[in-house]
C-alpha cells in the first residue's frame, strides 16, 4: 500500500548512507513495510543499492547470507554450497506464508528483523546455529547468535542506528544431517510450530520456533533418547498464542514434530507409529 507520510526515498550506496535521519527507515525488500500503514515513517533508505553479494562462501566452509539476499536468491544457492542444509533451506523458504511473487523481493534480513515467531528465516538460521553480523553506529561490527538476537514477537537486540548486515552459517551446521518439520492450521498457512534439527558426531540440536515467542534451542550431546528430548520440550512453559493456533496444541505439535525430527536424524521411526524409538 501507499505509505502516506513518506516524502523521501534515497538509495544507499555506502555505509555512511545508512545513518538515518529522524523519520527514516531502512527499506529492504519492502514486502512487509509496504504491507501495513507506517505512521511516523517519512523517509526510506533503500538497501538494495548497497549491492551486497546475496551470499558468499566464508573461509573455513561457512556461508554468509546478506541481509538483502532475497528468499528467491537463497533458494537459488547451489546445493553444493548448502551441503546437508539444502533441504532445510528449501523447506524453510516454502514454509513462508508468502507467494513466490513476494519471495522474489522479501529478504532474509527483513524476515529476521521482523522477528515474528513464524519467521521461517529465523527458523532456518537459528536452526543452523547462525550468527548475525550487525554494523554498529560507531563504524564497528558485532556478532550474536540468531537465537538470542530475536528476543520476542517483533523484537530483536538491534539498537538504534544498528544495521543487520548478514547472517553467517557455520560450516559444521552445513555439513550436519538436518531435518525439518512444520505444521499450521491450514495446509500452506502461517506456521504454528516449526522444529529444525541438526546432528553430527558432536551432538544433536533441535531448534523450536513458531510455537514459542522466540527461538528455543535444545542441545544434546550425542544422540539423545526421545524421552529426554520430550522432557526438555515439556519443560518449556511459554507457548505462543495468536490466530494461527492455540498454545496447548502448539505445545503438543512441537512435541510430535520434535520426535519426528529426532527420529529422522537418527534414521528411526517416530514413536507413535509403534516403531523403534
Amino acid at each position: 500500500m501507499d505509505l502516506v507520510e513518506v516524502t523521501d526515498h534515497r538509495w544507499a550506496r555506502t555505509r555512511a548512507d545508512l545513518r538515518l535521519a529522524p523519520g527514516e527507515r531502512l527499506l529492504g525488500g519492502g514486502t512487509w513495510l509496504f504491507s501495513e500503514p507506517q505512521p511516523g515513517t517519512t523517509g526510506l533508505v533503500d538497501l538494495t543499492t548497497m549491492e551486497w553479494p546475496a551470499w558468499e562462501a566464508l573461509p573455513g566452509g561457512g556461508l554468509r547470507i546478506a541481509a538483502t539476499c532475497t528468499i528467491e536468491e537463497l533458494q537459488a544457492v547451489p546445493g553444493a554450497v548448502l551441503g546437508g542444509a539444502a533441504r532445510v533451506v528449501h523447506a524453510c523458504a516454502d514454509a513462508l506464508l508468502m507467494s513466490f511473487k513476494v519471495a522474489a523481493w522479501a529478504t532474509v534480513g527483513g524476515n529476521l528483523c521482523l522477528a515474528l515467531p513464524a519467521a521461517a528465516m529465523v527458523s532456518l538460521t537459528a536452526g543452523l546455529g547462525g550468527e548475525v553480523v550487525v554494523w554498529t553506529p560507531d563504524g564497528g561490527e558485532r556478532r550474536e547468535p540468531v537465537a538470542s538476537f530475536v528476543t520476542g514477537p517483533g523484537s530483536t537486540t538491534l539498537a538504534p542506528g544498528e544495521v543487520l548486515r548478514a547472517v553467517d552459517l557455520p560450516a559444521a551446521a552445513l555439513a550436519a544431517r538436518t531435518a525439518f518439520r512444520r505444521t499450521s492450521l491450514a495446509r500452506l498457512g502461517r506456521s504454528a510450530a516449526v522444529v529444525v534439527g541438526r546432528a553430527n558426531a558432536a551432538g544433536t540440536t533441535l531448534t523450536l520456533t513458531a510455537a514459542t515467542p522466540r527461538p528455543v534451542v535444545l542441545a544434546f550431546p550425542g544422540t539423545p533418547p526421545w524421552v529426554e528430548v520430550d522432557e526438555a520440550v515439556r519443560a518449556i512453559t511459554d507457548w505462543y498464542a495468536d490466530p494461527h493456533g492455540a498454545p496447548d496444541w502448539r505445545r503438543a505439535m512441537t512435541r510430535r514434530l520434535a520426535a519426528e525430527v529426532l527420529a529422522e536424524l537418527g534414521d528411526v521411526t517416530p514413536p507413535w507409529t509403534g516403531g523403534t524409538a
Binding site: M1, T31, F34, D46, V102, A104, W105
Partner: peptide, 19 residues
C-alpha cells in the same frame, strides 16, 4: 494486483514504485 515486472510476476502493492 499482480503485474509482470520485467516479465516476472509481482504483487504490485508491495513494490516501491520508484523501483
Amino acid at each position: 494486483c499482480s503485474v509482470l515486472l520485467d516479465g516476472r510476476p509481482v504483487h504490485s502493492c508491495l513494490v516501491p514504485a520508484v523501483r
